[in-house]
Write a protein that binds this DNA or RNA. Structure first.
Lengths: 109, 109
DNA sequence: CAATCATATAAGCGGATACTCATATGAATG
DNA sequence: CATTCATATGAGTATCCGCTTATATGATTG
């Protein structure tokens, strides 16, 4: 296990995935697709973002294969091709909550 | 499980972690600390990055609690406070490799 | 087929960020 | 204590990225 330490040069593709997840709105969109596929309009409504902006984010996620579009009439529904990402995100969040940030030292005034 | 889908608004802190991991050099640095603590100079040597740049990245990682500094004489060694992140990164990478990117449609010429 | 609705794309702006150069701090060594 | 070594910080710059304002495509409906 932990093959990652044996090949620290192959982190580029992984970092690109993280870049996609590093944008709060994008992560929120992805997270919103967790329960079920959603149309673009539905995502717009749920997030409060502009339609243009949502389409833009969805495109990035789609091009990376993180979401999959599905045409239904005039609508396009976006789905998670693999629900496993939700578990991964949860694992990460659980771990993140255990992080102890260092004391920011302020001088006593 | 998958609490993340029940609270898509609390993704901000998680996205900040991902932002830290989204920079290839930063991820490479973190990855290099997997086996053992390393001094700044050692990281510089291993990555080929400038000392200033390494210090800059290490600061961000440190402030987030992802790495922990340890003074040893004139040197500062950086360590992973929690090796679990290596497993998480590996899980993510394994999953990322299963992603099917959509066919970029080119016209037949 | 004209109009409308759902979604996608293009161009541009403003802010964030990764990197460099210069410099500062702080420890070891003579 | 002066010099050197290890690391950290600050300012400046160039690039990237997210968002908006148009505009385009493509499907439905009358």
């Amino acid at each position: 296990m932990n093959d990652i330490v044996t090949d620290c040069h192959g982190v580029k593709p992984l970092s690109e995935i993280f870049k996609l997840l590093s944008e709060p709105n994008r992560l929120r969109i992805l997270c919103g697709l967790g329960m079920e596929c959603q149309s673009v309009g539905s995502v717009v409504e749920e997030t409060g973002l502009s339609q243009t902006n949502v389409s833009f984010h969805l495109r990035l996620l789609r091009e990376a294969g993180l979401v999959r579009p599905e045409k239904r009439g005039a609508f396009v529904y976006y789905c998670l091709p693999d629900q496993k990402i939700l578990a991964l995100l949860d694992d990460f969040r659980a771990w993140a909550e255990t992080l102890e940030k260092p004391a920011t030292h302020k001088k006593a005034s």
